[in-house]
Structure formats: C-alpha cells, structure tokens
Amino acid sequence: MTLVNFRDPAALADPEGRRVRHGVLYRSAQPYPADNAAIVEQLNAAGIRTIIDLRGEAETEDADWARSRAAGIEVVAARVQPTDRKLEAAMMAMTTDADLGAFYLLMVESAPGAVKLAVEAATRPGGLLVHCAAGKDRTGWLTALLLDLLGVPAEEIVADYHRTTAALPQIFEGLAERNRNALNDYHAGSLTVPRPLLEAPADAMAAFLELVDARYGGTEGLLAHCGVDAATIEAFRAKAAAPAAEVPAGVTA
C-alpha cells in the first residue's frame, strides 16, 4: 500500500510552474498501516530525501518510517501536538468553517519551535514530504504557508487544501483501524468531533490565510514570530521557487 492523499500541490496549484518548482514539495497522510517497500519506492520515484512528520509523539509508532530511514531518507520530527488546553477549548467551541481556520492559526502559535524546525528542514536538498496523521490539518496549514512564501495565489492554496476532500473516506478508514480505541470512544459518545474537523472546507483555509494577514501581516510575519529568520525563508525560496527565466512575460511571482 502506498501513501494516501499523496500529491505535489504545485502540480495543481501552479500547473505551469510559474511560481513553484514541481517535484520539490509533496504532502500526504501518515503511512498506513506502516512504512513498506511500496512506499519507499514511491518516495524514491518522487526524489524525496526528507520527510517532515508533524504528528505529536503519542501519534507515532516505531515502524512508521523504519524502511524509509533504512533507505537513507531523513525523517524530521517537528512535533505539533493535536491538542492542549487552548486547542481543546477551541475545538469544543468550533461550529463553523471559519472557526477551523482560527483553530489552524492557534495550532501554529502553539508550536513555534516545531514550525521553525519544519521550515528549516524544507530548505534541505531534494524533495520534501510533509505529513501529519490525516494529511489535512497540520499538513494543510504548513503546506499553505510554504506555498504562500512562493507567491501562489490564495485561491489556489485554498483549492489545493480542499482537494483532500476526495481522499477523506480512505484517510478516515486508515485512522479508524490505527486508532480503534479512540473510535470506540467516539461511538460511545465520550468524544465529540466538530463537523468542520471531519471535512476539508475551503472556507477554513481561506479564513486561516486571512487571519495570518490580519494578525501578522502575512506568512513571513507569522514565521518570524515562530523564530524563522529571513535567511531560512530565502533559502527555501531559492530551492523551491521557479527560476525567474521560466516565468512568462507579464506574470508576477
């Protein structure tokens, strides 16, 4: 079994390669049931040399990336805990898609060190894979921030995020098998998952990007708040931005 929801967001968000080099940034859900030979082949075929794992420590298992590590692919654990006291309170109060967007910004703000580590890892040579558990929420906002640094229009970033909708049945099936006890608790009524968290609504990502602009003046301001320096941002752009010579006349980056 290969990775679920695996894709190069630039291939759809920037199909002509005007802003982003294709084959640099990929996204997916976590490996299920665990890393295997087919996944290693999938990563090697895409030229991926670094994996950024955004899951919290309790979400991971030793076998998750064992084969890929053995094959020489580096795994960077940039831990973003799925909940803490503030996140749990925001989750309980969540009713709208805009609330989910605000929840995403709260997640970023809750883990500045992990965000800094992830962006620094994104500058390493070779292709990069970003993933969390479902490959929707933490993966969604980090991918959005990286694409925004490269000048991808907000509407295309939102559209890429929303594309995860098609993979949600398969994603949730894998999560259910991996987290059977939590699923039993959910059916027993001891857990309540807000409706927006079970979807990939376009309005959530649009709200997130708007909040980043309103509160921090844009992605660079938010990343600076997380400790990411200007040199790291420029190194990522040097790696992932489309060469100026390839940008058609009249198109702004």
Score class of each variant (00 low, 15 high):
Ala118Glu: 06
Arg49Asp: 08
Leu142Gln: 09
Lys86Tyr: 06
Ala144Met: 07
Gly47Ser: 04
Gly17Gln: 04
Arg27Val: 10
Asp62Cys: 06
Tyr26Ala: 05
Ile52Cys: 03
Leu105Ser: 13
Thr96Arg: 11
Met91Thr: 14
Met91Glu: 06
Gly135Glu: 10
Val75Gln: 04
Leu100Pro: 03
Val130Met: 11
Leu54Tyr: 06
Arg79Lys: 14
Ala46Gln: 00
Arg19Ala: 04
Arg124His: 09
Gly56Tyr: 10
Glu16Cys: 12
Met94Cys: 02
Phe6Ile: 10
Thr60Ala: 13
Trp65His: 14
Gly140Ser: 02
Thr60Cys: 15
Asp8Ala: 10
Ala46Val: 03
Ala10Tyr: 02
Ala46Phe: 02
Leu43Glu: 02
Phe103Ser: 00
Leu142Trp: 01
Glu120Pro: 00
Phe103Asp: 01
Met94Tyr: 02
Trp65Met: 03
Ala58Arg: 12
Val75Asp: 06
Ala38Val: 03
Glu61Gln: 12
Leu12Asn: 11
Phe6Lys: 02
Val24Gln: 14
Val130Gly: 05
His131Gln: 13
Thr139Ala: 11
Leu146Gly: 13
Trp141Lys: 08
Val119Pro: 07
Gly135Thr: 03
Glu109Pro: 09
Glu16Ala: 15
Arg21Lys: 15
Val115Pro: 05
Asp148Cys: 04
Ala10Arg: 07
Phe103Leu: 13
Ala122Ile: 05
Val115Phe: 12
Ala121Glu: 04
Val108Gln: 09
Ala118Ser: 10
Asn44Glu: 15
Ile52Asp: 07
Arg19Lys: 11
Val24His: 07
Gly113Ser: 07
Ala58Met: 11
Glu57Ile: 13
Ile73Leu: 08
Phe103Gly: 01
Asn36Gln: 07
Thr60Trp: 08
Asp14Ile: 10
Leu147Ala: 09
Pro15Asn: 10
Ala66Asn: 00
Arg19Glu: 08
Arg124Thr: 11
Arg19Asp: 00
Val20Tyr: 07
Gly127Ser: 05
Val20Gly: 04
Val115Gly: 08
Ile52Glu: 07
Thr123Leu: 03
Gly140Asp: 03
Gly113Trp: 07
Asp97Ile: 05
Val20Cys: 14
Ala98Trp: 02
Leu117Asp: 14
Ile39Cys: 01
Asp53Ala: 05
Cys132Gly: 15
Arg21Gly: 05
Pro9Ile: 06
Ile52Thr: 12
